[in-house]
Design a binder for these strands. Structure first.
Length: 569
RNA sequence: GCGCCCGUAGCUCAGCUGGAUAGAGUACUUGACUACGAAUCAAGUGGUCGGAGGUUCGACUCCUUCCGGGCGCGCCA
């Protein structure tokens, strides 16, 4: 694919231009305007050194290349300060054959991460609370990054850092003991649990002493009280069951669950370690690690009452992941509001002497904004739930199917695939760093740049392949493609591996979503201008091969985003 | 007050490590289905890239500053 093509071109040019192939490779770029060819080489950088105007250099280099033109180049043309290369269609077709048609299971894969492990902490909800649309975002981004890492050859461990510890469990246990009779734990355990949570906070507004009862009950839990511990375990179980059900809707499953409670007996040793390394400083009765930048607040390690804190737990957890689980890279898919916290934690780890601290990254994502509501608050039960969003999308897709394709078989399954795909795509198509204004109309818009648009494009491919009369579409080209739309599509398909590489490099799934839209737009143009099946249903087999390749790429890229690719819709 | 992030077409957003006339979708105006599936395609209208300086052969991209929005800032997680 593109990586290979660039390398090959760079190697060939290297001897002709007497420049190191690496420096050519890193300068080669894809022109925005397709009329400028497939790859461009800007020569501005040489102007000063060679004391010549860029257009002159471009002209001279072009002449040099033309005198001994590499086999893969169809045309090289100087244009202002650029050397524009148009590659031979036959070469591109051969390239598609070897990298896509001959090995569909390896499309876009790289060995860049081979032998390395990456642990990705994502989704990580808090026990007893329903997952909100914010968790949905964390989940789809995290899962996409898992998939991207796998495509780069990494061994991936998707980790659920479940919020299963803290005073809220004292409150919850206390609330359960008081009011459990009023709720139907048998039939709807999770809803009941959440109802208790909301009720406790409501009543605590009026009767602040409830908070003390909660704190006392939590102390019992901490000291291993049997009854409370049993309750706690049960709450965790109820919650995990609910989360697994929701994740299953998105096709998500973590490889490992390590809740906060897992680190309970590692907190003291971690503090000891910090103390031994002389990093702890007393401040207002608490123990902190000061940061290098004086403007940055210090990292709180131990409260004045001796209890540990959020940061302590994350430090212990990072050490566990990187040292015990022997991870090479540690990723945290957590909202931007935690930016300072992770900066502090990573700096502390670095001060502790862990060289791998630089391989820990906070993959932050923007917050949902709400027009009227302000921030969501699960305490007050004001929250847009993960499941509502997904279910609404599925319902709407059902209506659309009823209207557009009432004959469709297994409507429910396809409605789910399309509805879920729409939700995932909608979340992944924008840069994760940006805040998003929640708007039902936008979430449920399935036209234009959207998941269903991509799925529909693939459905059209599938439909063609079905109607072609081939049992299996031809995996080889017979003649050189002539249609300009076909050649352009071919070129876009070949850049898939480069897209995956870039997407992983900056941990941004929207790169892949944007690419999918590019492929679909080009396919649609190609489709509109070229007759692929003629009147007698005889086929233009080379175009069919291209259609098949398009579908393979679409399905692979959709898979990276964890979106299904139905055959019909 | 301090720190970080964002500010591109009416609206929602792309624009990778600075590169050739700033691109999609949506909305609006047109045109294309007795169908290779119109959840589509083609065309048009629409942008002083928040403002002002600076660096550079070249700035939406880098630096400074201001404005607007978001998030965070020691005993919650």
């Amino acid at each position: 694919m593109l990586t290979l093509i660039k390398t090959e071109l760079a190697n060939q040019l290297s001897s002709l231009l007497e420049l190191p192939s690496e420096s050519i490779l890193e300068r080669l770029e894809s022109p925005k305007n397709p009329e400028h060819g497939h790859l461009a080489f800007p020569v501005f950088a040489f102007a000063k050194e060679w004391k010549k105007a860029p257009p002159v250099i471009a002209q001279e280099l072009a002449d040099k290349i033309k005198a001994n033109q590499p086999a893969l180049v169809a045309q090289v043309s100087p244009m202002s300060g650029f050397l524009n290369f148009t590659l031979k269609t036959q070469y591109l077709m051969d390239c598609l054959k070897t990298t896509v048609l001959d090995q569909p299971e390896n499309i876009g894969r790289s060995q860049a991460g081979a032998g390395k492990r990456v642990i990705i902490d994502y989704s990580s909800p808090n026990v007893a609370k329903p997952m909100s649309i914010g968790h949905l975002r964390a989940t789809v981004i995290g899962q996409a990054i898992c998939n991207l890492a796998k495509m780069q050859g990494f061994e991936v461990v998707g980790l659920n850092h479940l919020g299963d510890w803290g005073t809220q469990f004292g409150k919850l246990a206390w609330a359960y003991q008081q009011w459990n009779q009023e709720y139907d734990f048998k039939n709807s355990p999770f809803e009941s649990l959440f109802a208790l949570y909301v009720r406790f906070h409501e009543e605590a507004e009026k009767r602040p002493e409830l908070n003390e009862f909660g704190a006392e009950t939590f102390k019992k839990l901490e000291s291993g009280d049997d009854e409370i511990t049993q309750l706690w375990k049960w709450f965790v179980e109820i919650s995990l069951k609910e989360y697994d059900r929701l994740w299953a809707l998105l096709g998500v499953k973590h490889d490992l669950v390590r809740g906060e409670s897992f680190y309970n007996d590692r907190l003291k040793p971690t503090e000891k370690l910090l103390e031994d390394k002389g990093l702890l400083v007393e401040s207002d009765g608490a123990m902190v690690v000061p940061m290098d930048d004086p403007k940055m607040p210090p990292c709180l390690i131990r409260k004045s009452d001796g209890a540990s804190l959020y940061a302590t737990r994350d430090i212990a957890s990072a050490i566990y992941r990187m040292e015990e689980l022997k991870s090479d890279i540690g990723l945290y898919v957590v909202g931007v509001d935690q930016t300072l916290h992770f900066k502090q934690v990573f700096e502390v780890l670095s001060k502790m002497g862990y060289a791998w601290a630089k391989d820990c990254h906070h993959i932050s994502f923007g917050m949902y904004q709400f027009k009227n509501m302000g921030r969501m608050s699960s305490r007050k039960g004001q929250i847009i739930e993960f499941e509502d969003v997904v279910q609404k999308a599925i319902e709407l897709v059902k209506e659309i199917i009823q209207e557009k394709n009432p004959e469709l078989k297994s409507k429910d399954k396809i409605a789910e695939q399309v509805g879920v795909g729409a939700i995932i795509f909608n979340d992944l198509m924008n840069d994760r760093i940006k805040n998003v204004e929640f708007d039902w109309d936008k979430v449920l818009d399935f036209e234009g740049n959207s998941g269903p648009y991509v799925q529909y494009c693939n459905v059209r491919c599938k439909s063609l392949l079905r109607k072609s009369g081939y049992k299996q579409w031809p995996k080889t080209f017979q003649n050189e493609l002539k249609s300009p739309e076909a050649i352009q599509l071919l070129w876009i398909l070949l850049s898939y591996d480069d897209v995956l590489k870039n997407g992983y490099k900056i941990f941004k799934p929207h790169i892949i979503a944007m690419y999918l839209l590019d492929v679909c737009r080009q396919f649609s143009t190609f489709y509109a201008k070229n007759k692929i099946l003629n009147e007698n249903d005889m086929v233009q087999s080379d175009l069919m091969t291209l259609v098949g390749a398009t579908s393979l790429i679409l399905e692979s890229a959709l898979g990276v985003l964890n979106i299904s690719a139905p055959n019909e819709m």
